[in-house]
């Protein structure tokens, strides 16, 4: 009975260690994180997105096929409901990037509830952080180009319409909230949601095994715990879609801020 919980090769209170999966390329090597399940999932998601959009748009038809309809409505959703809605008419130019971002985050988040995969690369801070850096560099670049020079952009971004004697008070706040909080909160929000989701599922799954192996009479509680896991998986689905949407919307809103003229 004690052996049951070791079948999963994980002890009950799940820890951060559970996010570091064994190496694949040097098979089973310890402390080698160059090619793990996470790496594999990232490449799979990149390949899936590229192949899906290429295949579904290879022979576009007036009456779309199912695949084409899916691809078109994904792109149409991001373009109309995120890019144009947030940025305005100029947002169409950013629709490709935002769509790519949305699909990539959505698919990678979705891995966290696919049976037998059940971990999202976004539960490692490196991936959300890199995505946040891309969005960060992009909105600054867009702002610099729109305002015609770094200093003009900084002037527009940092100097609010206020009397001169309050400016020393306000400029540090503007700098902090525009250029320091933004990338940080983008990355941490996505990472923390994915991390917590995976942890929650681990707690309820492994908790069930822990209770069974502690005492047979706890079996009903274990079953409740596993039912909770299934319910939480559906909750996770909500979080997955919401976080992909939020990341994309916030990126669009930052671009909009960079493109904004005087308020």
């Amino acid at each position: 009975m004690i052996g049951q919980s070791t079948v999963l090769a994980a002890e009950f209170p799940p820890s951060v260690e559970d996010f570091y999966l064994p190496s694949i390329l040097p098979w089973g090597a310890h402390d080698s994180y160059w090619f793990t399940k996470i790496t594999l999932l990232i490449w799979v998601s990149v390949a899936v997105i590229i192949i899906f959009f290429l295949v579904s748009y290879r022979k576009p038809q007036l009456v779309p096929t199912k695949k084409q309809w899916l691809a078109e409505s994904l792109y149409g959703f991001v373009r109309n409901n995120i890019a144009v809605e947030m940025i305005g008419p100029r947002g169409v130019a950013f629709a490709p990037y935002l769509t790519t971002l949305f699909c990539f985050i959505l698919l990678n988040n979705f891995f966290s509830i696919v049976p037998l995969i059940q971990i999202s690369p976004n539960s490692h801070i490196a991936f959300p952080a890199l995505l946040a850096v891309i969005s960060y560099v992009m909105f600054i670049y867009v702002g610099v180009r729109h305002h015609g020079g770094l200093f003009k952009y900084l002037k527009a971004a940092l100097i609010p319409p206020a009397p001169w004697f309050i400016l020393p008070l306000l400029i540090p706040i503007e700098f902090f909230s525009n250029f320091m909080v933004r990338p940080f909160s983008l990355a941490v929000r996505l990472f923390a949601n994915m991390f917590a989701g995976h942890m929650l599922l681990l707690v309820f799954t492994l908790g069930g095994f822990a209770m069974v192996s502690a005492n047979v009479w706890f079996t009903p509680f274990s079953i409740v715990s596993w039912i909770m896991t299934i319910a939480l998986t559906f909750l996770e689905f909500l979080v997955i879609v919401l976080q992909a949407y939020v990341f994309t919307v916030l990126t669009a809103s930052y671009v909009q801020g960079a493109l904004a003229d005087e308020h």
């Binding site: 809605e85 947030m86 940025i87 305005g88 008419p89 939020v246 919307v249 916030l250 669009a252 809103s253 930052y254 909009q256 801020g257």
Partner: peptide, 8 residues
């Protein structure tokens, strides 16, 4: 060119 109130 109007932007509606946004979640941002």
């Amino acid at each position: 060119g109007q932007n509606p109130p946004d979640t941002g």
